[in-house]
């Protein structure tokens, strides 16, 4: 079976420091695949590599069998990859729903002529887009913020908004970078439900997360990174019993 994401010998060096070193793994379609590891283990760098924001120093990433080496992030988005960020990337110069509508960018025909003269076809598309964005905001649980300026929203709501924006692109693979960071217990519980809902729809989820309870609960597969290298790779049950992981996490 072909993997959705196939990573082989991935390496990223900043100056002389290898943030990611010789990392190989594969993600099957439909999985919830989590990447864990201590701070500075290279998790976010790995996500930046997969989503095309960084170019690898060496090694290869394949998305659906195609090498992503020459692809820009927007081209990866066209191929169904979308993500959220640990340091949220929200357009604070827009309203909440506009941020989500931005997520549908690739689904909209943008013709300069119909835009400038505001033709009915454009208005119809916009209305449909807005409707879909509204549904997504309700889906992630920030339906009450529709026309609020993004800059006026709370941290937790923005985190969910970013997920809604990623979902708006109808990705086949969504990368969530520490979605639970900064959330309280109730919000985290809601997030867990949300991730399950996303996975049930058939979207593959890759997750970087520190909240072990959350990760162990929802992941099909885990990748443990330490100092940029793969420490372990397996199901939650396997990882829990892996002596290397236990040593690393308990400060052995």
């Amino acid at each position: 079976m072909n993997a959705l994401i196939e990573v082989r010998g991935l390496d990223k060096a900043f100056g002389g420091v290898h943030a990611v070193e010789g990392v190989s793994f594969s993600v099957q379609a439909g999985q919830v695949y989590s990447v864990i590891g201590p701070n500075g283990a290279g998790k976010t760098t790995l996500f930046n590599l997969i989503s095309g924001l960084y170019t690898p120093t060496s090694g290869e990433i394949r998305l659906n069998g195609e090498s992503t080496a020459r692809l820009e992030p927007n081209q990866l988005a066209e191929r169904g990859l979308c993500r959220t960020f640990q340091q949220m990337q929200i357009c604070m110069n827009m309203t909440a729903i506009e941020n989500v509508m931005l997520g549908r960018h690739l689904k909209l025909k943008s013709n300069l002529f119909s835009t400038l003269f505001r033709l009915p076809s454009l208005l119809r598309d916009e209305q449909a887009c807005r409707q879909r964005a509204k549904e997504l905001m309700e889906f992630v649980g920030c339906g009450e913020y529709l026309d609020t300026d993004a800059s006026a929203m709370s941290y937790g709501a923005l985190k969910r908004l970013e997920i809604a924006r990623a979902l708006a692109a109808e990705p086949t693979l969504i990368l969530l970078d520490e979605p639970a960071a900064g959330l309280n217990a109730t919000e985290t519980a809601a997030l867990e439900v949300l991730i399950r809902k996303i996975a049930v729809q058939g979207t593959t989820v890759m997750l970087v997360e520190h909240d072990m309870k959350l990760v162990m609960g929802i992941s099909d597969h885990l990748l443990v990174l330490n100092y940029g290298r793969v420490l372990a790779d397996g199901t939650p049950a396997e990882i829990r019993q892996n002596p290397d992981v236990i040593a690393a996490y308990l400060g052995g």
Partner: peptide
């Protein structure tokens, strides 16, 4: 014309370049 442009998918893409270029790129904005 300017207002029509701003309040449209093209306009959102433009504003997202200002708001967060990274976000714009990962949702597919060239």
């Amino acid at each position: 014309l300017a207002q029509n442009l701003i309040d449209s998918p093209i306009g959102r893409a433009l504003r997202s370049v200002h708001g967060s270029e990274v976000a714009a790129r990962v949702v597919g904005v060239n």
